[in-house]
Design a protein around this nucleic acid. Sequence first.
DNA 1: TTGACTTCGTTGCAGATGCAACGAATAATC
DNA 2: GATTATTCGTTGCATCTGCAACGAAGTCAA
Lengths: 146, 146
Amino acid sequence: MSGKLPDFDLSGFLPYRLAVAAQHVSAGLAGLYRNRFGISVAEWRVLVHLMDSGEVSVRELGQMVSLEKSKASRAATRLAEAGLIEKTENEADRRLVSLSLTDQGRALMAELLPLAIEFQNQLEARLAGHMAALNAALDRLMEEKP
Amino acid sequence: MSGKLPDFDLSGFLPYRLAVAAQHVSAGLAGLYRNRFGISVAEWRVLVHLMDSGEVSVRELGQMVSLEKSKASRAATRLAEAGLIEKTENEADRRLVSLSLTDQGRALMAELLPLAIEFQNQLEARLAGHMAALNAALDRLMEEKP
DNA sequence: TTGACTTCGTTGCAGATGCAACGAATAATC
DNA sequence: GATTATTCGTTGCATCTGCAACGAAGTCAA
């Protein structure tokens, strides 16, 4: 019959808590731009990174903003089709694709960024004094491999 | 003509940081059981919740462990096919399905739980003194709607 | 130069995902 | 009791996802 299963509280289990919190926050943010601008989380990351990095390859994108290369590639394709970024062949190394914001993309970001900054400010306000500690903890979690 | 785009640092943007950290930790945990036991994150959550909740409906499952009802339903179906849980019709309300662990499921959890507990302990060790602060911050994030 | 390796970005594919719609069962309203 | 609403779990479907495999381009070594 029922054996000696140890006690276990899922709601206190850190991987679970992190996943739920991240999903919760991400949904709140996505609500700001998904319906109004029709871009996904991956596309958002690509746009933000292009904003202050000039020309970037798909591979760099992947490692800089934590996107699978196929995900980064598809996000870039969609953004290019939407006219928000431009894909050009890198002349020095023709394996590489140079991605850069178009004027239209820049205009979109000019609308989008204030919303994101405001969202971050609301989060900080909600966190009150816990913001620094949260960031320190997240840094710790990212430090090592597993 | 680069316009007046505000400065924005994605790597300091909380929704992004949370998503990356959650993904990182979750991948570490999943490595413990995905290959060795062949269960997914959703299935893991279902098993854990059934462990100390006895008989549960799919709907309760969904709200208790943050799973879409279709996701919960499919996870339950897979677990039942694998013989780890049992699905019975609730007699009082025949719309409901009662889920419960089988002996085989209980045996699996007896193997799995120590690994999860050990994983949590490693996380706590890595976080050193930051654990309490992290939990407090996560609570804050979950408090309100967005 | 030639041939073996590596790197880059894309794509095929199988599985996962979320939403909406569905049938069945129950509740509510009259 | 009959009709309408609501709830539950499942499923169809379009999309997303990650992985592996691929061709093209570049590097390295003999």
